[in-house]
Simulated scan of single mutants.
Amino acid sequence: MHPEPGELPGQIRWIIPPGVLDIRGPVRAPRELGRMQNEGTIDEISVGPRSVLITADSSAWRRIG
């Protein structure tokens, strides 16, 4: 698993092996990521077939990195 920049500012795409996650689309995360979603620090988490895309305000990444 490794991160790459997303297509838009404020996005990070975590590349994962195929078949690891069996869900697709926007998700609500548990624990710390879920807390950051609830607070609005993270705008969206979306699961694809080979990646997890996390979108936040680009200025937030220095703080939450």
Rank of each mutant, 00 (worst) to 15 (best):
R50K: 08
N38P: 05
A56Q: 00
P17N: 10
P26Y: 09
I12Y: 03
G6Y: 01
E44V: 03
I23L: 13
V52I: 14
A56I: 01
R63D: 08
S58R: 02
L8W: 02
L33E: 11
G10M: 03
E4S: 04
D43L: 09
G34Y: 02
S51C: 02
E32R: 04
P3I: 15
S59N: 10
A56G: 01
S46G: 06
S51E: 00
S46W: 04
I23D: 08
E44W: 01
G6N: 02
G65A: 12
I16G: 05
T41M: 10
T55K: 07
A60D: 08
S59D: 10
A29I: 14
G6D: 03
V27A: 13
M36L: 08
M1Q: 03
S58Y: 03
A29M: 15
M36K: 04
P17F: 05
Q11D: 10
G10K: 03
P17T: 13
G19I: 15
I64C: 06
I15A: 11
W14A: 13
G65E: 10
D43T: 15
P9I: 00
S59Y: 09
G10E: 02
R63T: 13
L8G: 04
A56E: 01
Q11C: 14
S59A: 14
L21Y: 00
G10T: 06
V47W: 02
R13A: 10
E39F: 13
L8S: 07
V52L: 08
P30S: 06
A29P: 13
N38R: 15
V52G: 07
W61M: 05
I45A: 06
P26Q: 11
Q11H: 11
P18I: 14
L53N: 11
V27S: 09
A29C: 15
G19P: 09
S59L: 12
